[in-house]
Simulated scan of single mutants.
Amino acid sequence: MSPSKIIESYSPPPDVALSAGNEAIKPVINFAHILTGFVGVIAFVVIIYSGFLFATSFGEPEKLETAKKTILMAVIAIGMALMGELITRFLLGAW
């Protein structure tokens, strides 16, 4: 069998958590998606703001440290949001 026929015949496994019998799980998964997107947008804005602080610090150690800490906290927030969605999907069997 040629690789192109294998690719054409591939169909992904059905999504067990979102099948007809598990409609109650959809709002939880949708909420996780919305929350992750919201945290991502806010973290992006915070990273832009921190970059502005970093660029306008003019070598002042206090402003540099504030900018570095703010960027680190934004990256941690993104990681926590992604882990939260990952855990939600794992626990609800949405894969």
Rank of each mutant, 00 (worst) to 15 (best):
T70E: 06
I29K: 06
V46C: 07
M83Q: 09
V46G: 01
T70A: 08
E62G: 00
L64A: 01
F54I: 05
G40E: 02
V45Q: 05
A94W: 02
T56F: 11
G79F: 07
W95E: 09
V16N: 06
M1K: 10
Y10I: 01
F38K: 04
L18A: 12
S57K: 04
K5D: 14
S57Y: 06
I42M: 13
V46E: 01
A32M: 05
M80V: 15
V45W: 09
A55C: 09
K69Q: 14
G40I: 03
G84T: 13
S19K: 11
I78S: 08
L92E: 07
I71A: 15
S9K: 12
T36S: 13
L53I: 08
G79Q: 04
S2W: 02
A81H: 07
S57D: 13
P61R: 10
G79I: 03
V39A: 14
T70Y: 02
D15I: 09
F58I: 01
E85G: 15
A17N: 08
S4N: 05
F52D: 10
V16Q: 08
E60V: 03
A17L: 00
E62L: 05
L91D: 03
E8D: 15
S19E: 03
L35F: 12
I48D: 04
L91F: 07
G84P: 04
L53D: 10
G79K: 03
G93I: 02
S2V: 05
S9T: 12
G51D: 06
K63F: 04
N30I: 08
K5I: 11
S57W: 06
